[in-house]
Amino acid sequence: MSTGQVILATLVILLGAGGSYLLLPHRHGATRSRNVHACGAVLASLALLGFLTTFFSPPSPFLAGLFFYLFSIGAIVGGLLTVTSRNPIYSALWFASVVLSTAGLFLLAGAQFLAAGTVIVYAGAIIVTFLFVIMLAQMEGKALYDRAARAPGSATFTCFLLFWSLLYTLGPLHPQQDPTASEGNGQQHAEKSLVRGGNITEFYQVNEQDPAAIALAHAQRQTSAMRDAGGAEKPDVAGLGESLYSDHLVTVELAGTLLFVALVAAVAITGPKRPIRPGAGPQQDAGEGGRRETLKT
């Protein structure tokens, strides 16, 4: 990563950190919060603009590029507003925008089944969250805990330091024209340009008896490759099903068990308590006593 790019990354991160710090709910001296929000929104959108123009390389067909930018802007803006909204209802709505945008990005990356699955699963999750917000939260973001963020300065610093380091590591990923040009620095080129799964064995000349070679061969079985032996692309759902039910059968079973255990846990945690009726004797502590009683009967 060149020095100019490092400076640009730092600038973008500083702008974004300042914008999100101003947008997080807490008191800013005597200034009116509306002005602070406008200032934060301007800073954050400048950061987003810089982020999109300097670090992204536009995808080649125009329409795919357009949709990619649309979905990534939707995801990032929705994410920021989920985090900074005072009203949890708005948070849930913006989270829906994040989910829809990531589903669009999945679709652009060729994962049709998961795009549909994400929308279906998270639509249910968001509706349930909505019901919870309506049931439990104090409306309109007037509650103290919605107006005061916990340690906004240090939280922003930590998170954007992580973001900066991720940018710093992802920045040098650029395709090299000819990765095997010279023997001496072939390794370096490979680390910059990330050899694809199919070429790893020959590029690094992995020994047959090496455990890495066995792991590689295991990972690249024909059943979990995106293309069949002839080189034609498998249909997404068929390929995914083949991979899931031949290579990852234990995983499927484990996932089912996990869902079942979580269901049992959710019922056990919220277990119904016996209602307290007038004249039924002294009141017990509603939490522990009631639980013990239901367990006994």
Binding site: A219, S224, M226, L240
Partner: peptide, 9 residues
């Protein structure tokens, strides 16, 4: 990128 379905799994 790696032409592999394991990421989706």
């Amino acid at each position: 990128y790696h032409g592999n379905l394991t990421g989706q799994v």
